[in-house]
């Protein structure tokens, strides 16, 4: 592999990284909002969220990204590939994140809300000062775990023509006629990236355990 191949590979890695980063930055708070809405037990909204999470868990990203990219223009929303990819990853990861957040909300001790009420805290203040800082710590390992799943599923966006870290190997091979070196190099980059997240998750897990002790 020459200099051009290496810079192509890095460009592909950058595409994967920024698209995943946006999906994570939006998907984590969106998951929290969905979990809170579901736990608020609003009649119809709750059922819709259950349906959304169930569909989100079952739909392959390849299918979803094709659906969003090709069907959106029919409804008057022409999307460029990158927007379609980001929306797809957000919709997918938010469904999984909602489940992680919900487990933390459900496991949260009731006594704390009673104590906060007795001390005269309003609900939003209680959520911001008491609940969120704690469920953040207990949810974080699970959320980071979902991030690794998101990165592992992200090559699906290659199907709508985005040259990410996976698809760039085809581009390089088309020039060099040597597919194996770029594929191995891309695989190594993925493994370095994902192992960093796995180590982070382990460390956060220990912190969360200390909190619940």
């Amino acid at each position: 592999m020459d200099q051009a191949a290496f810079s192509a590979l890095l460009a592909g890695a950058w595409t994967t990284a920024w698209i995943s980063a946006i999906a994570i930055a939006v998907g984590v708070p969106l998951g929290l909002a969905l979990a809170l809405l579901r736990e608020a037990r609003v009649p119809v909204v709750g059922h819709l969220i259950v349906l959304y999470v169930s569909l989100g868990r079952a739909t392959p990203l390849v299918t979803l990204v094709l659906f969003i990219f090709l069907a959106a223009p029919l409804f008057g929303f022409p999307l460029d590939r990158y927007t379609a990819a980001v929306i797809t990853l957000i919709l997918n990861t938010a469904a999984f994140n909602a489940e992680v957040w919900r487990a933390a909300i459900r496991g949260f001790p009731r006594e704390q809300v009673e104590a906060a009420r007795a001390a005269g805290m309003t609900r939003p203040l209680y959520f911001r000062r008491i609940m969120l800082p704690q469920i953040w710590i207990t949810s974080l390992p699970g959320l980071v775990n979902e991030m690794t799943f998101l990165i592992k599923a992200s090559p699906a966006i290659a199907v709508i023509g985005i040259v990410d870290l996976t698809r760039v190997t085809n581009r390089i091979a088309a020039v060099t006629y040597e597919p194996l070196p770029p594929i191995i190099a891309a695989a190594v980059i993925y493994m370095v990236l994902i192992s960093a997240f796995v180590r982070l998750q382990r460390r956060l897990d220990e912190r969360a355990h200390r909190l619940t002790m």
Binding site: K152, A153, S154, T169, P179, I183
Partner: peptide
């Protein structure tokens, strides 16, 4: 441990596009 750090499509690429080189 290694396999679980690899995206599935990347692995399929190794088998389908990579192995013919060998």
């Amino acid at each position: 441990d290694g396999m679980r750090m690899l995206p599935f499509l990347m692995y399929a690429y190794i088998l389908y596009y990579g192995l013919p080189s060998l």
